[in-house]
């Protein structure tokens, strides 16, 4: 499936990303629990990994199994996150914090949307417009290009730059 995706097949690529996400989520939740980080961080890890998989998919040698490749990327992102959160590994989280995050878990839907706005707002136009159009409104590259009176090529370039900017934002911990 990833081979088709590498070849530029949007549908195959989307279903590949969908099929690895639950797996990534399970790993991320386990890590977060083990490192005493709030469960809400797990989704940030998942998204960080997805963006990294996306930007670094050119490093996968198609003659090799994809499992070790994916696992190494997950480990790299998890270690990076842990380092950013203050290293040591054993991060003590006060009970009040846990209770607090348990509470926010309930309206994570609203949280997600607020996060999305915050993240997207840090991009510059036209990238912001393109990202909002494709991710939140579900428009395709073609429709977006027509609406913004840009060529499809220009939209693609801007979109790709936006993906790199998003990766940097996840990394800076403001995801």
């Amino acid at each position: 499936m990833m081979r088709g995706a590498i070849g530029g097949d949007e549908k195959a690529y989307r279903s590949f990303l969908h099929s690895v996400t639950p797996h990534l989520r399970a790993i991320a939740r386990r890590r977060c629990r083990a490192w005493g980080m709030p469960p809400s961080d797990a989704e940030d890890v998942v998204q960080d990994v997805l963006v990294t998989v996306h930007l670094k998919r050119g490093t996968w040698d198609q003659t090799r199994p994809i499992g070790p490749w994916l696992a190494t990327i997950v480990r790299n992102r998890a270690v990076d996150l842990q380092r950013r959160r203050g290293g040591g590994g054993q991060i003590a989280v006060p009970l009040e914090d846990v209770v607090e995050t348990l509470g926010t878990e309930l309206d994570s839907e609203a949280d997600d949307l607020a996060d999305a706005e915050r993240l997207i707002n840090r991009l510059k136009d036209p990238a912001r417009d393109i990202v909002r159009s494709i991710s939140l409104d579900g428009a395709g590259v073609k429709e977006t290009a027509a609406r913004l009176k840009m060529t499809e090529g220009a939209v693609r370039v801007a979109l790709h730059r936006a993906m790199k900017a998003l990766a940097a934002l996840y990394r800076s911990g403001n995801g």
């Binding site: 590498i6 989307r14 990303l17 996400t21 997805l50 040698d61 939140l136």
Partner: peptide, 24 residues
């Protein structure tokens, strides 16, 4: 951002490829 939205975004960006082998 919702993970599904992110996936839609990434899939739309499938056309820009940066394979390592030819670059090296």
């Amino acid at each position: 951002m919702k993970t599904d939205d992110l996936i839609r975004l990434l899939a739309a960006d499938v056309h820009v490829r940066e394979p390592l082998g030819p670059a090296i």
